[in-house]
């Protein structure tokens, strides 16, 4: 099995997560060959791939070309991290006068699998790798961050008076931020059919103006 890891516009943090899977990486290398990973290795070939992971968003012509080539060469293309899935923080800025754009990978080419997160969680990455090297699409079951947060028996940030996007954010991270007492910022994007209206009125009832809430909401989420 041949794997490639391509970086577009992003911080490279999600690519680095491949190094943070420790033991999992050596197991992966027994079954797959990493042909292309410029962040990590010097000798890279870009030929045929079973799986290509694309990190980052598309912000220039060069990104577009790179991505289209990756799509041609890959049997399975995985959008890795929130930039690739939703455009990332850089996409939360409105398009500028000089015509800059910032697109998620899926708006340029067809994507087979999305692994959001800022960065993508190591456990989720490892589990998805296990699926992919066995030729199976990673299992997806969209729940909310609240699901994992309740199960971890954390204290609820919202009930404590804070702001947390857990109720409308896709699960899969294990709710590490609320566990540390920090409200969820929604880096994994939307849960299924999120109720924005109810969330905005919840924040407004805590004295946060609507414009500010919307800024928070669309830090990671793709504005519709």
């Amino acid at each position: 099995m041949h794997i490639g890891i391509v970086g577009l516009t992003g911080c490279s943090g999600c690519q680095c997560q491949f190094l943070n899977i420790y033991g999992g990486l050596s197991k992966l290398l027994e079954r797959a060959k990493i042909d292309y990973f410029p962040l990590l290795q010097d000798d890279n070939v870009f030929e045929e791939f079973d799986v290509i992971f694309v990190e980052g968003s598309v912000t220039c012509g060069e990104d577009k070309e790179k991505l289209k080539l990756a799509r041609e060469k890959a049997r399975v293309l995985v959008a890795l991290g929130s930039c690739a899935c939703y455009g990332g923080i850089q996409a939360s800025i409105e398009e500028t006068a000089c015509g800059h754009f910032c697109l998620p990978v899926s708006e340029v080419v067809e994507v087979d699998c999305k692994l959001p997160g800022c960065p993508v969680g190591v456990e989720r990455l490892l589990e998805s790798m296990a699926f992919l090297v066995n030729g199976v699409k990673p299992f997806e079951y969209p729940m909310t961050v609240c699901h994992e947060c309740r199960i971890n028996e954390n204290d609820c940030i919202i009930l404590k008076g804070g702001i947390c996007q857990g109720p409308i954010t896709l699960s899969g991270c294990g709710a590490p931020c609320p566990q540390m007492g920090v409200g969820c910022v929604g880096c994994r994007g939307d849960s299924d059919f999120p109720n924005y209206e109810a969330f905005v009125s919840l924040c407004e009832s805590k004295g946060i103006p609507k414009e500010r809430v919307e800024k928070l909401l669309f830090l990671f989420r793709r504005r519709r």
């Binding site: 999992g24 197991k27 992966l28 079954r31 490892l126 589990e127 790798m129 296990a130 699926f131 090297v133 066995n134 199976v136 299992f139 079951y141 729940m143 909310t144 609240c146 699901h147 309740r150 199960i151 609820c156 857990g166 109720p167 409308i168 849960s191 299924d192 059919f193 999120p194 109720n195 109810a198 969330f199 919840l202």
Partner: peptide
């Protein structure tokens, strides 16, 4: 908000789903 907290903390809710996860 549809967060599911009510069912997750409920002493009688038992709905579950299952999936098969291969090892690497």
């Amino acid at each position: 908000l549809g967060c599911g907290t009510c069912t997750n903390v409920c002493p009688t809710c038992f709905c579950f789903a299952s999936y098969d996860v291969p090892d690497i």
